[in-house]
């Protein structure tokens, strides 16, 4: 791991998309995902930590991002309003192919507890034991969440006729 003079900047350049993607799958909103991504890296910037390697750094970033998503979800006083302009800008800030939009919609609608596990397993390639350690859950719980999350994705898509 280089660029140890500014670990947060290094981390953002290397894992910015990863953290944003994880946050997006968990909170289902690009705007909120950006907020969370910003918080994660600024937390690292204001309170620098040391990491053994890039994998350690990445795992820390993902864990913090997912925890922040949980905090956001349970924040009963959070209220976000967006003007139509903002909505359009948000939509334009990333591209979604037409045929994949229903898939993304289903991913966004997946409850956070499933979304984070599904993401870590299928996208990031962590195994159940690593996810269990990362999230402080038992391996059995992770397996159950994976299965149920997978079923929810599949069932929802079938219902919408996407498959």
């Amino acid at each position: 791991m280089d660029n140890t003079d500014n670990i947060a900047l290094y981390a953002f350049r290397k894992f910015g998309d990863t953290v944003l993607r994880a946050a997006y799958t968990c909170c289902g909103s690009y705007a909120e995902a950006e907020d969370i991504t910003q918080d994660v890296f600024l937390q690292l910037h204001t309170k620098p930590q040391s990491f053994t390697d890039d994998e350690h750094l990445k795992a820390w970033l993902l864990r913090v991002a997912i925890n922040k998503c949980k905090n956001l979800k349970r924040s009963f006083r959070i209220s976000r309003t967006s003007s139509l302009d903002n909505v359009e800008a948000e939509s334009a800030s990333y591209e979604i192919k037409t045929e994949e939009s229903s898939v993304l919609a289903e991913i966004r609608s997946l409850p956070e507890k499933y979304a984070s596990v599904i993401y870590l397993y299928y996208y990031e390639g962590y195994n159940t034991r690593e996810i269990a350690e990362m999230q402080g859950k038992s391996e059995n719980t992770v397996s159950s969440l994976l299965r149920r999350g997978r079923e929810k994705l599949r069932l929802e898509l079938e219902r919408e006729g996407a498959l």
């Binding site: 910015g16 998309d17 944003l20 993607r21 997006y24 799958t25 690009y30 995902a33 950006e34 991504t37 990333y94 591209e95 979604i96 192919k97 994949e100 898939v103 993304l104 991913i107 599904i118 993401y119 299928y122 996208y123 994705l153």
Partner: peptide, 11 residues
């Protein structure tokens, strides 16, 4: 499908 959909989510 899952991975491809998320590949487009970038900063």
């Amino acid at each position: 499908d899952y991975k491809r959909a998320l590949d487009d989510i970038k900063c």
